[in-house]
Design a binder for these strands. Structure first.
Lengths: 665, 665
DNA sequence: TCACATAGT
DNA sequence: TACTACTATGTGA
DNA sequence: AAACACAAC
DNA sequence: TACTGTTGTGTTT
């Protein structure tokens, strides 16, 4: 045992992925050796580790392939590549914009600092914010032990048993963040918030106007109210007057943040976002870095800069480039020919801009959200029923978010991660906006079903996620109840009643195809026998349950379907429209819960595109079986004792119901 | 709004239930007013509060009733009661035993102290152990804020926002507890551990032997190893020699605990457990109380003692007795006539013993466990399917515990608590030991089903629990496979193969009652056609799934049953025995999941007592429905393509199968 | 035997 | 958002 | 369009 | 016991 584990520990191939980077603030001069050993001791042999190994192998293979491709290039190709690369570089250089002043401001160890501020005793203790599963931030004390953001809590505890783990308190951080952002707005009302703790500001215009500001407007003093009861000494927060330079603005900004929140921030001031971002990290914590808008000094700085410091180059890109002997941004320039040959256009453009220290000097207005999703890690689930229930849970969470953001999407994405950390996504797009739980769940279940089938029922998951993409603003289409559709009475107060849910119980006798519709309002549980009109109507259905019970003399079947077609249909109910939601049912469907399979055609009932929303409910199964054992007693008797007005019966929609009838026979 | 909520706050009727008791250690001189206000602010209006109100009302009603009954007693009755009470008191007094010396030892704020010990920085901070839902202990610092054990964390946070909540670390506490208990064993090897942090010791024998102990054996010094690296000064833990008295023993005990664990304990030394328990609380923390084995001094003490300090008198009894003007143990004596008239024999005996300061002076040997259960609080669940799944989860946890303890029980108890905090228990007893998940789940599902039905499907729960009681040692009955039962081949290596699971697929044609048994080993998935022998066998079945498929020309049904009868049956298979497990099926059963109802008789197949273990599996439903749509194609063809040897068919056990056959027809 | 309340940790 | 988990006993129907 | 890898916070 | 959750982009098929 000892041999084996030490053997594993000496296998340091993975250090590239696993070990900590000490290039972050607060990580200087610590016992990296010991920290890595502890991390490895708590990692080696885990499924997580095995997966990391696998992924590392994939990266190594990618590197091998790249190197081989690299060997095959002719000198002619290289020459051309060099030329083209230089062209690109030239055009980037031409577009270099040193005229603007961008500040990237980044709160120091944000969540941890907020917690420290509110509980000063934590300041002198190693502390991290997050849970046993995963830490979000650590304070500088904890970092000395190797405890860092994105480290699981239980490993952090091994590194530092005294570590105090404080749970996340998002509302608080949000509030503090807003305080900061209200300051940002004074300098650039279009500032770009990247997260709760960092933002870009374009202070070009502010600098122009600033020269007109009186000294008073450039003078700030501490906020007595805030300091009350705090142990922070007022003399540490003197009144200060700030000058006119960009650096002065940054100092002022950080001073004001400190006054308002008692928190420190670091900043980078530069002609573009890339440099500003790098700058804010250089003098962390509570420092700032200024890049003169001067090509030469920027180039000098960038030449020696580790590529890993650049936002957009992560673990893998670092390794890929390292294989080409590219470690600094200067190297990116040196190896521009190879890069051109080996990487895509987009990647090359990014690399070359990086090599020249160029990036956008304009802050794009906050772009619209493009997807919305939720995911959860849990203890292994294998039971399909439980997986479906988990999916349902997620869908509930998701629709909550969807409603808040008031959007709809055209693609549903299911994400799963097996217990071996293999993750997969499965998606399906349709032509109309998806926004309700039922819609998402329907597609999600189907996607999940395929995965379960694919794994032959041995799907053991540690994570599941569901989301929608291809977003658009939520349709405000009027909800019309199924009842009003059939009765012809328009539901005119749709604005007041949000969603109208109605059960339709239709009984079809085998011989005559006679049917009576019994509407059951699921909210009031009132049943009401009504005529089913076959007149042509226009309707929009959402979240309507259609329960159809069919009884022949000897058999009786029941099913509940969910009508998910929300689009206003222009025509009579016997005109089919398979364009939109029918896509859902191009293939045979199996009810994910009860595993009953139906052919696609069985799902199309005239213009209604139905889907089995839930499996045959348990009650229905009971009814089926009971009705069969109770020979000669038609189910209709039991189901609708109110059926006292046979005269009201009308032969309606029989062709539509026929299909369902057949399907059950 | 304001009016209403302040109106509610001023409604202090509930203070009796809700407010904190300051009679606990560490709660002196704090701002009780403010604390109660904060507690109420965070409680009023909650469902929890409403429930507490309801229960308080019930208690008040109980008090009213009691008072009325009290009024009706004639003076003659009172006289007799007084006489009888005095008789009881006399007999208690006669049995008073001052000859023994009991120590009750109680660790101070145990979990919190352990955490403080391991993280010294917590010592100066308000801290509690537990979760946001509920705290287990708080340290003395936190108690000053009103933060106490059994207080929900989120309220504690309001009382003391700086409170550090440390999650439970049970393994650690267990280890420390064992360290303490190893010390206890030196003084009384039969000490009675009440929990991880307290125990009773009968040191009578130790005291006798102690006079012979050399000074060395009564001398203890600090454990250098333990103190290494700790900030505890060695000089605080000098070498100490202890005398021969009971107090000396207690001091020695507490000293040794401190040396070994760095934790403090409090103790009570008295002639019986009741006084010892009270004593350990009086000088908390880190103190002890000695009661001389002297009737007069005990009576003097007990007379003025608040009844609430007595173990066994809780919130409600305190209120009930207070209504009779009983607040001290002396009052218990004064009002002995009323108590005799108003309370049960057992209660009176307890009260009178309390009034005299008498209780058991002997420690009962650790009595055997009488029940085992598990329960969980969760976010509201209403969906019956999810409730059943939750039950299944709980059963899984429970059987884990059952197996550890190696027991079985005869009663299954289901506990539920609605979102309104109404809690209910439902139980069912049978005559044979229950120990497997299937057995518990079967009964549990049925009990739950009844509740769901009772609530008309509107059962919204916040808690569910499952347990077994009427415990006995787990049966080690030999497992015999169903296959060996039928084939006559004895399963002789039962010791090696734990549980043998076999599917029996029996097809019964409607006309002839011919049957072929197809055994399917669920482990190997091998199907094997075999003769079913009707010879008399003795068998013991456990965890055997019996899947029976019945196909007539037009219909086909399938069900899987679980044979739970584990008792060795003495006779032939066509002799019914309804004595044991049949009790399970005295009433009609409805499969909790699929809601199919079966009559009790349908479940008895000869000597086999069957129960529907799980609902018709989803696959079976599919088969049923598919086979019905595939007219004229008997299911048997599909199910057993191997049926190529009709000659092997024998008409066996047909009477047994007939019942199932009928049941499906 | 069952259901529920009470109690202790 | 929001008040535990487990075991035992007493009591009345 | 779908699947996945990468990246950032 | 035990390695997140959300969003966006780029690349490949």
């Amino acid at each position: 045992m000892e041999e084996e584990s030490s053997g594993k520990l000496s296998d340091t191939k993975l250090v590239g992925r696993m070990a900590l980077n000490d290039n972050k603030a607060g990580m200087k001069g610590l016992d990296k050796e010991k920290i890595n050993r502890i991390i490895m001791e708590n990692t080696v042999g885990s499924r997580y580790y095995k997966n990391e190994q696998k992924r590392d192998k994939q990266v190594q293979e990618r590197i091998q392939k790249m190197k081989e491709r690299s060997k095959c290039f002719s000198s002619q190709q290289r020459k051309e590549a060099l030329q083209k690369a230089d062209e690109i570089l030239a055009s980037v250089e031409k577009e270099r914009d040193l005229s603007r002043t961008i500040i990237h401001i980044d709160m120091d160890a944000f969540y941890a600092s907020v917690e420290e501020r509110d509980r000063p005793e934590l300041k002198e203790k190693p502390m991290a914010v997050g849970g046993m599963d995963m830490l979000s931030t650590s304070n500088y004390m904890a970092r000395r032990f190797g405890v860092r953001a994105a480290m699981p809590g239980f490993i952090a505890k091994k590194l530092c048993p005294e570590l105090i783990i404080v749970p996340l308190n998002f509302d608080k951080y949000k509030k503090v963040s807003q305080e900061c952002q209200s300051i940002f707005a004074d300098y650039d009302c279009n500032f770009m918030a990247m997260s709760l703790d960092e933002a870009y500001l374009d202070i070009t215009e502010h600098l122009e106007k600033r020269v007109l500001l009186s000294e008073k407007k450039r003078t700030f003093s501490f906020n007595a109210e805030l300091l009350n009861g705090s142990n922070t000494n007022a003399s540490e927060h003197p009144t200060k007057t700030f000058g006119f330079s960009a650096q002065d603005v940054s100092e002022e900004l950080r001073f004001r943040i400190h006054q308002k929140t008692l928190l420190t921030a670091s900043a980078g001031i530069a002609p573009n976002t890339m440099l500003a971002k790098i700058g804010s990290d250089l003098n962390k914590p509570n420092g700032q870095t200024y890049f003169r808008p001067d090509r030469d000094s920027i180039m000098e700085f960038i030449r020696a800069l580790s590529i890993r410091k650049v936002s957009g180059i992560g673990k893998v890109s670092e390794q890929l480039l390292a294989a080409l002997d590219v470690k600094t941004c200067g190297d990116l320039y040196e190896r521009r020919a190879d890069l051109f040959l080996l990487f895509s256009n987009i990647s090359c453009n990014f690399f070359f801009r990086t090599a020249l220290g160029c990036s956008s000097s304009r802050l794009e207005g906050d772009s619209e959200r493009k997807s919305i999703s939720t995911e959860r890690t849990f203890n292994t689930i294998s039971d399909p029923v439980k997986l479906y229930l988990k999916l349902e849970e997620l869908c509930e969470t998701l629709v909550g978010d969807i409603k808040k953001k008031n959007v709809q999407g055209k693609t549903v994405v299911l994400k799963i991660k097996t217990v071996d950390f293999e993750s997969r996504t499965r998606s399906r797009s349709i032509n109309s906006g998806i926004q309700t739980k039922d819609e998402i769940l329907c597609i999600g279940k189907d996607l999940l079903k395929l995965e379960i089938a694919n794994a032959k029922g041995k799907l053991a998951l540690r994570l599941m996620g569901i989301g929608i993409s291809k977003l658009e603003a939520a349709s405000s289409a009027q909800q019309v109840s199924i009842r009003s559709f059939f009765t012809g009475r328009k539901n005119n107060n749709a604005s007041t009643s949000s969603i109208d849910t109605v059960d339709l119980l239709a009984e079809v006798s085998d011989a005559s195809n006679d049917a009576t519709a019994i509407f059951k309002d699921t909210e009031t549980s009132c049943e009401k026998e009504e005529e089913i009109s076959s007149e042509k109507k226009t309707a929009n259905f959402e979240n309507c349950d259609l329960v159809i019970k069919c009884a022949t003399q000897s058999t009786s079947k029941t099913d509940s379907c969910n009508i998910t077609d929300k689009e206003t249909k222009p025509d009579s109910i016997d005109v089919g429209d398979r364009s939109a939601k029918t896509r859902l049912f191009e293939e045979d469907m199996t009810c994910p819960l009860c595993q009953v399979t139906f052919s696609a055609s069985e799902f199309t009932l005239g213009q209604f595109n139905l889907h089995i929303d839930s499996c045959l409910s348990r009650r229905e199964i009971k009814n089926i079986l009971q009705s069969e054992s109770n020979n000669n007693q038609p189910l209709s008797r039991k189901l609708s004792p109110k059926k006292s007005a046979p005269s009201k019966r009308r032969k309606i929609a029989s062709n539509q119901f026929h299909k369902i009838d057949k399907f059950f026979s």
